[in-house]
């Protein structure tokens, strides 16, 4: 086997998604090395990495209106959607790492896609500040999180329909971003901080990261009986956890 790794000019090597790529030569055998995989990195528990406490309170309140709690299933807040968004904004997604960010920036037709030099992290920071200013100016100096559910829904619907404009930022685009991110956090694997205890998967009957349904493909119109499993496993697999 001949496997040569060249680390030419390693300091200028391209960085994609946090992984540094080096050119290599593959010849003679498949380039297998022990433990060479790239498993996903679970979201770290602990304090907010991106949001301030005030921003986090607003995001949790929004998450709970986009996905309200009900007797069977927790809402967006308890499902961890704000934690999910916080970890995403603190990571490559927030910095729009890997996207094309060369100038010039022109606002084109909507069919031409997003054309902003600001990444999601910057957009969230600006929009949350503008939302806070809006609420304090128009709702008796209260923060979004302190409004009634009806008031919160009215503001979110106003942003969605462009009836409410935010100062210095596009409120409609912010609404679309947070709607997408809350729902993605709700349904993504729990390893990313949302979908806590696989509540979203239990809600719909999705068995999660299972890998073999050969016994079930021809069993038609029957409810699949096994509980969901995450890439990190499930509580029943781990000693000491219910």
């Amino acid at each position: 086997m001949r496997l040569h790794r060249r680390d030419l000019l390693a300091s200028t090597a391209v960085l994609f998604g946090g992984i540094t790529a080096h050119a290599s030569i593959v010849s003679g055998a498949l380039p297998w090395q022990p433990s060479a995989g790239t498993p996903p990195e679970p979201a770290r528990p602990g304090p907010w990495l991106f949001f301030t406490n005030e921003e986090a309170a607003a995001i949790e309140a929004i998450a709970d209106r986009i996905i309200p709690p009900d007797p069977q299933t927790p809402g967006g807040k308890d499902a961890g959607c704000a934690v999910f968004i916080d970890r995403q904004l603190a990571g490559p997604y927030g910095r729009q790492e890997g996207l094309y960010t060369a100038a010039p920036f022109h606002k084109g037709k909507k069919e031409q896609g997003p054309q902003s030099d600001a990444g999601p992290a910057e957009q969230y920071r600006k929009a949350l500040a503008a939302l806070d200013r809006y609420c304090r100016a128009n709702r008796n100096n209260r923060a979004f999180a302190d409004l009634s559910d009806a008031e919160k829904d009215d503001i979110l619907a106003g942003l969605e329909s462009s009836r409410i404009a935010l100062e210095g930022t596009n409120g409609k685009e912010f609404f679309e971003a947070i709607l997408k991110d809350v729902q993605q956090g709700f349904f993504a694997d729990p390893l990313y901080g949302g979908n806590r205890d696989m509540v979203a998967w239990k809600m719909i009957g999705y068995p999660g990261a299972r890998y073999d349904y050969r016994d079930w493909v021809s069993r038609h119109n029957e409810r699949f009986p096994l509980p969901p499993v995450s890439i990190m496993g499930r509580p029943g697999w781990m000693p000491g956890k219910a």
Binding site: V14, F16, G17, G37, P39, P40, P92, Y93, E97, G98, L99, Y100, T101, Q184, F187, A188, D189, Y192, G208, A209, R210, Y211, I231
Partner: peptide, 22 residues
């Protein structure tokens, strides 16, 4: 198969595709 079933990583964040920055 221990981690391939990751909708966020591969479907939403495009892990296996070209990066537009390239």
């Amino acid at each position: 198969p221990t981690s391939a079933q990751d909708e966020l990583r591969y479907r939403i964040r495009h892990e296996l595709f070209l990066r537009p920055s390239q």
